[in-house]
């Protein structure tokens, strides 16, 4: 029954949100999942979004699943002393109560071996799995890569 209510609620919320491109379930609010378009044969794609925990207990993003790739890993990328490094976040990603965590510069969802070429405008389905909020189906929108030159890539919050 509770699940049914949740599903109904998602339906109402997503229907109401229109173009806002966000997803809510339980205490978790997911905004603007997007993937940056990559070269045709790129073996990996970077996915980004913001995750807000509106509840009063911490939650944890434990996995991301997608039929669009062989696997999806949650990574932290760092540039320290001029060296770029990437580490899988094996313990998942804690979303503290009342806070927003951005998978943006620094953290990303890495889609490994995408099953096909995705271009700007395409939509990539995925499921974010949270310890408490459960599984949340989202759509990552493929967008042009930002170059900082002022063109393209608007609305991707930082």
């Amino acid at each position: 029954m509770k699940l049914f209510v949740t599903i109904a609620l998602i339906g109402i919320l997503t229907a109401g949100s229109g173009f806002a491109h966000d997803f809510t379930q339980g205490s978790i609010y997911l905004d603007h999942p997007m993937i940056e378009e990559a070269p045709p044969n790129a073996p990996v794609l970077g996915g980004y979004l913001s995750i807000q925990n509106m509840g009063d207990t911490d939650d944890r993003l434990v996995a991301i699943e997608s039929s669009a790739a062989e696997k999806v890993e949650i990574h932290r990328s760092t540039v320290t002393d001029g060296i770029a490094r990437m580490q899988p976040m094996k313990e998942g990603l804690v979303i503290p109560a009342g806070e927003t965590v951005w998978l943006d510069n620094g953290m990303h969802a890495m889609f490994v071996q995408p099953v096909e070429r995705y271009r700007a405008g395409d939509e990539v389905p995925a499921t974010l799995v949270f310890e408490k909020a459960g599984r949340i189906d989202v759509t990552f929108k493929v967008e042009e890569r930002s170059t900082g030159s002022g063109a393209a890539h608007e609305g991707h919050g930082q």
Partner: peptide, 20 residues
């Protein structure tokens, strides 16, 4: 090429520089 963020971003930026 197995680099989802730093590398494609650097190349995209260089392509924007070439264009500019």
């Amino acid at each position: 090429s197995h680099c989802p963020d730093v590398c494609p971003t650097a190349l995209a930026e260089m392509s924007a520089i070439l264009e500019a």
